[in-house]
Amino acid sequence: MKLPVMPPVPPMLAKSVPTIPPDASYEPKWDGFRSICFRDGDDVELGSRNERPLTRYFPELVTAVTAELPERCVIDGEIIIPTNHGLDFEALQQRIHPADSRVRMLAKKTPASFIAFDLLALGDEDYTRRPFTERRAALVEALAHSGPSIHLTPTTTDLTTARRWFEEFEGAGLDGVIAKPLTITYQPDKRVMFKVKHQRTADCVVAGYRVHKSSDEAIGSLLLGLYTNDGTLASVGVIGAFPMAKRRQLFTEMQPLVTNFDDHPWNWAAHDAGERTPRKNEASRWNAGKDLSFVPLRPERVVEVRYDHMEGERFRHTAQFNRWRTDRDARSCTYAQLEQPLTFALGDILPGLAT
């Protein structure tokens, strides 16, 4: 592979802002795996945000890239798995698997798509020093004949349209809007774009904790639950962004609530001691050896957290601590409190997106 921009390249990033800024190019914020695609003839590499190749996990995209993209190019985008109900991030996570046979089986069962939104190189030309308006125009031309797996993200410079996208597109699984200054050059690993994401709050039950990796007397994360209609306590996510002093304080505060698994709602006989997790067969897909065991707590304390949106029954991203709710009864923390976005079809965002 010999391109004007060579892998690995960390992608250009965005900083969070509370409102959509004016005078920019706006596009949907796709919720998948960020990836920079490098193609030089038959050589294809799919980079990731942490610069580790994703190529082996998406063989169907390697085939699509050679069929649908220019002979020599470097394109920034997002790998997604579309469904009739929106984006399926959980199916995307399942692709990060060590067994090649399983990866290829899933590639046929839940094929991925690539959403292109920036151009770093085309032919022998390095586009990274050109303004975004030039890169976008060249990207539109480069993808004029792309097919069913490679798609060009929609953009607009109209602020009113961007605000409408922010409200409507969430219903298809997208999680906000990206704003790019029109004259911005491509700056790897720099937060020079802007992102606006949905922010909501929920009152959750604290049902356990994991210890911090550097200390057995400090909280690494608190495990959150919500009650379902049938009274089951479901695992919905974690909070864990605390200063070390607060982690130690929380550890002390949680000790009176420590219980045993026999009396805890997240107890399954199939789990061996030391390997119990809030969900059956849970594992870290990015770190197969990561210990996901936890200390069970009596589900009595209630915490208000901030979150952006749900992925199925769980928070899509790590939630953020807001405040303790000593006035709330744990049993009152149900899914009914969560705001449900309007349903919106992916095909209305990108016509022809296969689901």
Rank of each mutant, 00 (worst) to 15 (best):
T232K: 15
E45I: 05
E170N: 06
W165R: 08
Y26W: 12
S113I: 05
D88A: 11
D31N: 12
V192C: 05
R56W: 07
R314Q: 03
L143T: 01
K15I: 01
D124M: 15
F294V: 05
D327H: 10
K197V: 04
G237I: 06
P256V: 10
V205R: 02
D118C: 03
A142W: 11
V17P: 09
R52K: 13
P82Y: 14
L297M: 06
L182H: 13
D31V: 02
P98S: 07
T110Q: 10
T133W: 06
T155Q: 14
R52I: 01
E68K: 13
A179R: 13
H317I: 02
V17Y: 04
P98D: 00
L224Y: 03
V205N: 05
L250Y: 09
Y186C: 02
F169V: 01
P299C: 04
P111N: 08
R130S: 01
T343H: 04
L54Q: 07
A270L: 11
R136F: 10
G312F: 03
R298I: 08
M12E: 10
V196M: 08
K190E: 02
Y307T: 12
M1K: 13
Y227P: 07
A234Y: 12
L182C: 11
D100G: 02
I36H: 08
A138L: 03
L222H: 04
A336V: 11
L119Q: 07
P278A: 04
R72A: 06
T201E: 15
N322D: 11
G225E: 02
T161Y: 08
